[in-house]
């Protein structure tokens, strides 16, 4: 075991997959010689060769199309979309092609592609370097959607995603790359070094897709979160004194509904937190599922804490970000409601 940042954990997963499977190829903008703008592919080209990890032109739709064609050939492409905000030109190839290929060809062709893409704000990225578009893809049947919250999960989930025979979108919350950010932007940055989930085995292991984990056990309210918001929720629980259970969903499709239902039936309250904009966000789907399956266990209305329905601002990003104070308010509110 060694302490790893999320960047190092992702790099380790990619390195292992390149080593174990000659059909794995990695490509994207700046990922080759340079090693990616967030350094996730650093050293991979030098170690594994130019045809295994290479730079592409700036054309996200082309990157995904080439990945679909390679998948049809029998390769296992792992592509990087430099920022999740840049994924939109690739949506036709993702939604109409990669996600539908197995179904429309009667199972003859498939697209075992992993799309890695940094998401989320908190780095002064403004509206084009901060978005969390996961709900666009959870709405698309045929794609799995993953968002880890720590280095240990990031490595194990990424290996599972690459080995999965269906297309997977792997969102990497960029604010977590170098530390467990809890939303207190004006406090000193903490690193993964002393965090238990920053301890990452150097060797191969998998974290199964479709399984949530319990980030904190609690008894009075269930918080459903993923990515950066897991750490924000942990801070909010500490600051509010509410004994909340925090589920880190890790995979949104397929969703670990059983874990959600079990927890909410136990606590009787539910707060859903995501950084993405509120309306039509994945929180809406979660709220619907919780009321369908746990209605008679609920003591209070289900609340959602999310980004405002505005573009992600630059100078005012901390007014947009659903930080621990807003989550703590929601926790108090569901406790006072009953």
């Amino acid at each position: 075991m060694a302490a790893m940042t999320m960047v190092q954990a992702i790099n380790s997963a990619l390195d292992i997959c390149l080593t174990r499977d000659p059909d794995v190829v990695i490509f994207g903008e700046d990922v080759g010689y340079f090693g990616g703008v967030f350094r996730c592919t650093e050293g991979l080209q030098r170690k594994h060769g130019r045809t295994r990890t290479f730079d592409t032109p700036i054309a996200e739709g082309g990157i995904l199309a080439v990945a679909v064609g390679m998948g049809a050939y029998g390769l296992r492409p792992v592509v990087e979309i430099q920022f999740a905000d840049y994924i939109y030109p690739a949506t036709d190839q993702l939604i109409s092609e990669a996600a539908r290929l197995r179904h429309r060809s009667g199972g003859e062709f498939s697209a075992p592609i992993t799309v890695r893409t940094p998401c989320g704000g908190g780095i002064y990225g403004g509206q084009t370097h901060s978005q969390s578009p996961e709900a666009i893809f959870t709405h698309v049947c045929g794609i799995k959607t993953v968002m880890p919250s720590n280095p240990y999960d990031a490595k194990g989930l990424l290996i599972s995603a690459i080995e999965d025979d269906d297309p997977v979108i792997f969102f990497e919350p960029k604010r977590l790359y170098n530390g467990p950010f809890d939303g207190h932007h004006n406090r000193p940055v903490t690193s993964w070094t002393n965090h238990p989930l920053g301890e990452v085995p150097a060797e191969y292991y998998r974290v199964e897709l479709g399984k949530a984990s319990t980030a904190r056990q609690g008894s009075t309210v269930t918080v459903l979160a993923y990515g950066t918001m897991v750490h924000v929720a942990l801070a909010a629980v500490e600051e509010s004194g509410v004994d909340a259970e925090i589920l880190d969903l890790r995979t949104l499709v397929p969703l670990d509904l059983d874990a959600i239902v079990e927890s909410v039936r136990k606590t009787g309250r539910c707060v859903i937190v995501h950084e993405a904009t509120l309306t039509g966000g994945f929180g809406a789907e979660l709220a619907a599922l919780v009321q369908e399956h746990c209605f008679y266990s609920l003591y209070a209305p289900i609340l959602r804490v999310a980004g405002w329905d505005t573009p992600y601002p630059h100078a005012l990003e901390w007014s947009y970000f659903p930080g621990p104070a807003r989550v703590a308010d929601a926790l108090r509110q569901v406790m006072e409601a009953s």
Binding site: A67, V68, G69, M70, D92, L101, R104
Partner: peptide, 25 residues
């Protein structure tokens, strides 16, 4: 014969990916 899509043009760039994979192999 690759699966035909109703979204026009998508197969054109996919073919390039298939060809790149063949060259890779």
């Amino acid at each position: 014969f690759f699966s035909i899509s109703g979204n026009l043009g998508t197969q054109f760039s996919q073919a390039v990916g298939w060809a790149m994979a063949a060259a890779y192999k």
